[in-house]
Design a protein around this nucleic acid. Structure first.
Lengths: 259, 259
DNA sequence: TTGCTTATGTTTGTTTTTGTTTGTTTTATT
DNA sequence: AATAAAACAAACAAAAACAAACATAAGCAA
C-alpha cells in the first residue's frame, strides 16, 4: 500500500471514530508502529489531526470538510445530470453569476476553462475557478461556516453593481405554490439581487427540494427564464408554467445515461 | 493531451478507487514501471492527478493540496521561523488582517483555531481559515490569477471600513533606504490602507527581500510597530530603527532549530 | 528503403520509505 | 516520590521506489 493512501485511510477512520491508536493501525496495515507514528506526524504538520500519546485525535477542521464532502455526495447523480444540462446554456464571453451551493459547485467544475467572467459568493467555487482562465470575481464579506459563502450586506451591495448575463441559482426548498424558500434572510436577499441584476436567470433544482417550505419566499418558479430539474413534468404542468422554459432531465439514478 | 489508452484507463480507475499504485498498473498493462511513471508524470502535468511515492492520488479540488505544494517552497524553513514568531504577537478576541502572500499563508496555518476575527484578501488564506472556528472576512473583488488575491477598488473600499487591531503584512521587496516596494499600484494601496486601518502593524519579511526595489514605495520599515525577519541584525543597526520593535529570528536553514 | 520521432525497456545511482535498535520520555501505579 | 510499563524518537540499515541516461523498438513520412 502506498503511504499516502495509508494516511488517507487513517484520516477517514479518524473522522468516523474521533480517535485512533498507533497500535491499532500498525496491526491493521501490517506495518511497524514507527511508520504509523511518522504518518501521524506528517498529518499533524498539515493540521489534519492532533497527536496524542498512543494515537491521535480528530481535528475539527477535518470534520467540516468531511461534512461538506458528504453533502456533495447526496443526489450526486441527479446533480450531474442537471449541471450537465446547465452548461449547454453558456456562451463565450458572458458574465455569469453562480449562487452558493453544492449544485452550482458541480456546475463550476463543468464550466469551460476560459472566456467567461464568473461572479460568485461561494468561496469553494471561487477557489476552484481561480485555477481556470476565466475571470473570477468573489463577493466580499463574512464567510459563513456551514455554507462557505458570503451573504452579508457587503456581498449584497457589491452584487448590485454588476451587469450579469446569466445567473444560475439554486434553492434549498420549493413550496406548494412553487415559491423558492430559504430560512435565512440574507440568502434570500442575495438570490433576489442576483435575479434582478441578471438578464436571464436559470434555476437548478433537484426533485428532493420540492414541497417543503421555509420562512422567506424568494421568487416563484415562474419568474425564471429556465428551470432545470429532474422533477416529474406531469406534476408541474398542473401549475401555470408558460412563462418558463422548462427543462426536465430524466435521470436514472443507477445508470446515469439519460441526461 | 492524453496520448494513449493506458493513460485514460489510469484516470478512469483512479476516479473509481481514489488511488492507484505503479506496480498494479505495470502488471495490469504488462509494461515496465518506468512507463507507468512516465504516464503519471504526464497526467500530473495536466493536473489530472497527484503523484505520490508508489502511485498517484486523485486530484482533489479542495485546497488541502495547495497547502501541500506550498510546503515545498523555497524559503520554507525561514518562513516557518518567522511565522512561528509572529503568532506570539496574537491575543484572543482580536481583529487581525492578513495580507496576501506565502508568508502570511504560513501564518494562517499557525493561527489559533478560535476567538479571532481574520480579515484577508487572499483566497487561499480565507479558504483555509474557513475551516477553523475563527470569523473570516474576505474582501471582495476580482481574483488575481497569479496571487490568488483581490486588490481592486472593491477590496480597497471594503478594507477601509474595518477597525483592525493587528495587521500582518508581507512585501515583495525592501530597497536600500528600507522602504517596502511593490510593482503594482493596487497592491501598494491595499497595504497602505491596511496599515492605516490598523492599531498595530507587523511586517514579516525574509532576508531574500532586502536591497531590491520596484516602482511603488509603500512604507518605510520604521513605520512598523514590529518587524520580524531573519535578516542580519548588524546590517540593520546601520539604519535608525529606534521606532520599531525589531525581532530577528535566527534560522539555520538545515537544522531549523534556532527559532 | 532511410531518417526521424516517439514510446518503451534497462541500467545505474539516488532518494524515499520502512523496520530495527537503542535510549529517552511519558503515563500509570504503588 | 519511586517504580515499572508503555510509548516515543533518534540513528542507522535495508528495502522499495524513483529518475537520469542510454539503448532498443515501433511507427511514419519522405
Amino acid at each position: 500500500m502506498i503511504s499516502n493512501n495509508r494516511q488517507l485511510e487513517i484520516l477517514s477512520l479518524l473522522s468516523e471514530k474521533g480517535n485512533v491508536s498507533v497500535e491499532e493501525f500498525a496491526i491493521k496495515f501490517n506495518v511497524s508502529k514507527m511508520t504509523i507514528r511518522r504518518d501521524l506526524e506528517k498529518l499533524q504538520e498539515n493540521n489534519l489531526l492532533q497527536r496524542t500519546h498512543g494515537g491521535a485525535l480528530m481535528n475539527r477542521v477535518l470534520l467540516q470538510e468531511m461534512a461538506y464532502n458528504d453533502k456533495r455526495e447526496e443526489n450526486a447523480e441527479i446533480k450531474q445530470c442537471i449541471t450537465r444540462k446547465a452548461v449547454t446554456f453558456l456562451e463565450n464571453n458572458k458574465i455569469i453569476y453562480l449562487d452558493a451551493g453544492t449544485t452550482t459547485f458541480e456546475l463550476a467544475q463543468k464550466l469551460p476553462t476560459q472566456d467567461l467572467t464568473v461572479i460568485t459568493n461561494d468561496i469553494r467555487i471561487a477557489a476552484h475557478l481561480m485555477l481556470s482562465n476565466n475571470q473570477v470575481i468573489f463577493l466580499g464579506g463574512l464567510i459563513g461556516k456551514e455554507t462557505g459563502s458570503v451573504t452579508d450586506v457587503y456581498a449584497q451591495e457589491m452584487l448590485k453593481e454588476f451587469n450579469i448575463d446569466v445567473a444560475f441559482l439554486g434553492t434549498s426548498s420549493v413550496d406548494n405554490e412553487m415559491n423558492l424558500c430559504t430560512p435565512d434572510i440574507n440568502r434570500m436577499k442575495m438570490k433576489k439581487i442576483a435575479y434582478e441584476s441578471a438578464n436571464k436567470s436559470i434555476l437548478l433544482v433537484d426533485s428532493s427540494k420540492f414541497y417543503s417550505k421555509s420562512l422567506y419566499k424568494i421568487l416563484n418558479i415562474n419568474d425564471f427564464d429556465v428551470v432545470i430539474t429532474d422533477f416529474d413534468v406531469n406534476e408541474l404542468t398542473n401549475f401555470d408554467l408558460k412563462a418558463t422554459e422548462f427543462v426536465s432531465v430524466k435521470c436514472n439514478r443507477k445508470e446515469d445515461k439519460e441526461c
